[in-house]
């Protein structure tokens, strides 16, 4: 579950760069490594605040927890799992794909498909290709040979308020 593949990669590259200069010989995981994971988690107490930016003392401790776990060699998935077990699924940035939560993943595509279907049916029903003998309501003249002239005529007509 990569959240921002590109950004994670950049952060990783930068993290490596900074490890080399600023925190040389330090085995302590860097802030960037910690934030890369904290970013994907939500503060268990505040409303809708990602863990990497939450200023509360509790969140500061949780970030240190991530750092400690990283130092122990825990993987990203293991750390996330740890937080879910302790604080519930709300720490994840989106609902885990299980049980009732599937609703939020299945409904939007269904709605888009259904809407597109209705729209398609509607257009099929309503669109009656132009036929010179049945031209009530049409504002524009049917296509002439010279499109550019037709366009100019349309603009002029509209501008003169004859539309």
């Amino acid at each position: 579950m990569k959240r921002y593949p590109l950004i994670s990669l950049l952060v990783l590259i930068l993290a490596l760069g900074i490890t080399g200069t600023v925190l040389a010989q330090d085995v302590r995981p860097t802030d960037d490594e910690v934030n890369a994971i904290a970013k994907q988690l939500y503060c268990p107490v505040c409303e809708n605040t990602p863990l990497d930016v939450c200023p509360t003392e509790a969140c500061r401790e949780w970030r240190e927890q991530i750092r400690a776990m990283l130092a122990e060699g825990k993987s990203e998935e293991e750390i996330k799992q740890f937080f879910v077990e302790y604080y519930g699924a709300r720490v994840l940035s989106e609902p885990p794909r299980q049980g009732f939560n599937w609703v939020i993943y299945i409904v939007p595509p269904l709605v888009i498909l259904a809407g597109a279907g209705i729209l398609f049916m509607g257009l099929r029903k309503w669109v009656t290709p132009d036929d010179p003998g049945h031209d009530r309501g049409a504002k524009e003249a049917p296509g002439t040979a010279d499109e550019e002239n037709e366009y100019l005529a349309r603009i002029e007509k509209e501008l003169l308020g004859k539309d």
């Binding site: 959240r3 809708n48 990602p50 699924a89 994840l92 989106e94 609902p95 939020i104 409904v107």
Partner: peptide
């Protein structure tokens, strides 16, 4: 979609008794 995402945590809490977050990624 916005309406669904905004209300889903509430509905999920009522139905499954578990709170979830619907974040930017979704």
């Amino acid at each position: 979609i916005c309406y669904l995402g905004m209300n889903f945590p509430l509905v999920a809490e009522i139905i499954t008794n578990q709170r979830v977050t619907v974040g930017p990624i979704w």
